[in-house]
């Protein structure tokens, strides 16, 4: 897809999100969640470029969400909390990435899963600090110094999510076209050649890992600010699986894919849950099956569809 066409599509997409949020007030919350998950899924997509699937990235989502919950009391300003939580998630990504970037394929996927399960149980077990499965309330915060009432607060998080989504999509697009981003795909196809070119594959993957952790952290911080309540479930392995699901659904061929996947996922979930109770897993499962069988490139490839 040309730059122009992709930019136009992104713009239409952003306008559609704003229009829907304006027309249907209760969608504001759903769309904020979708954008947040889209950002996290974008990070998972970066690793997928290197052929690596993480089944543990919800750990970074939960980590940043709890960081917001803990810090909101002292740092009551969202525009400080967000970058702080993102930075902390990136740092955790660096520490964990130094370890997991040595592993590939099933070992990479399972190590991420294992670490996220350890983190989940820490959140659950240390009741005196984290309030266990009850989770923690996130105190009210200001946006650019302004105290916001309910509707204003909803709009503030939605706009922040939209701005961050666009920002990370642009960053990911530039990154994937840069030498380090292009080298990611080289890890998938011919890792040894990277070594023989003098380029350490682990470092190539580590950069992607830190970026993906920062993106998952962004999602966690946004979700904490919009739900105002964080629980260990945010880091449960099913939440990690959800991110992988979203990437496959939306498509890993372009940076818009994860966002299309996230919006489709959240809308199907909400509408299906409202109309046919307990049927949404069935519907999502069927959709995923259809994508894998008929549209490997996900929703993004359907949009790209007719080639010019």
């Amino acid at each position: 897809m040309t730059h122009r066409r992709e930019a136009l599509l992104a713009l239409l997409f952003a306008l559609a999100v704003l229009a829907a949020a304006f027309a249907v007030p209760w969608l504001r919350f759903v769309l904020t969640l979708a954008l947040a998950k889209g950002i996290a899924a974008l990070g998972v997509m970066l690793l997928l470029r290197a052929g690596q699937v993480s089944f543990g990235h919800a750990m970074f989502v939960a980590f940043a969400a709890y960081a917001v919950a803990f810090l909101a009391g002292q740092v009551g300003e969202a525009l400080l909390l967000l970058p702080l939580a993102i930075l902390l998630a990136a740092l955790l990504g660096l520490v964990i990435g130094l370890f997991v970037a040595r592993y590939r394929e099933i070992f990479f996927g399972m190590l991420n899963l294992a670490l996220s399960m350890v983190f989940y149980s820490l959140l659950e077990k240390f009741y005196s600090i984290t309030h266990g499965t009850d989770g923690m309330r996130v105190p009210a915060v200001t946006w650019a110094g302004m105290a916001t009432e309910r509707v204003g607060g909803e709009w503030a998080v939605l706009v922040a999510a939209l701005v961050l989504a666009i920002g990370f999509a642009l960053l990911a697009r530039l990154y994937l076209a840069s030498p380090l981003g292009e080298a990611l795909q080289g890890i998938k196809t011919r890792e040894a050649r990277l070594e023989f070119m003098g380029l350490p594959p682990r470092r190539v993957l580590l950069v992607a890992y830190v970026l993906s952790a920062a993106m998952a952290g962004t999602a966690g911080a946004l979700i904490a600010l919009t739900t105002r309540h964080v629980t260990p479930l945010m880091g449960y392995w099913t939440a990690s699986g959800e991110l992988v699901f979203i990437v496959i659904l939306g498509g890993a061929g372009g940076v818009l894919g994860p966002f299309l996947g996230a919006i489709a996922y959240e809308l199907v979930r909400v509408y299906a849950a409202a109309s046919v109770a307990d049927a949404w897993q069935l519907i999502l499962g069927a959709v995923l099956l259809a994508v894998i069988l008929f549209a490997r490139g996900g929703l993004f490839s359907l949009l790209r569809g007719r080639r010019a």
Partner: peptide
């Protein structure tokens, strides 16, 4: 030992990038 999903030009450019050690993101 080629990067099979990249074009020939990108294979070469990756080698040049590796040589230059220029890794702006």
């Amino acid at each position: 030992q080629l990067f099979t999903e990249h074009t020939v030009l990108r294979n070469l450019a990756l080698a040049i990038a590796a040589r230059e050690g220029a890794f702006s993101l």
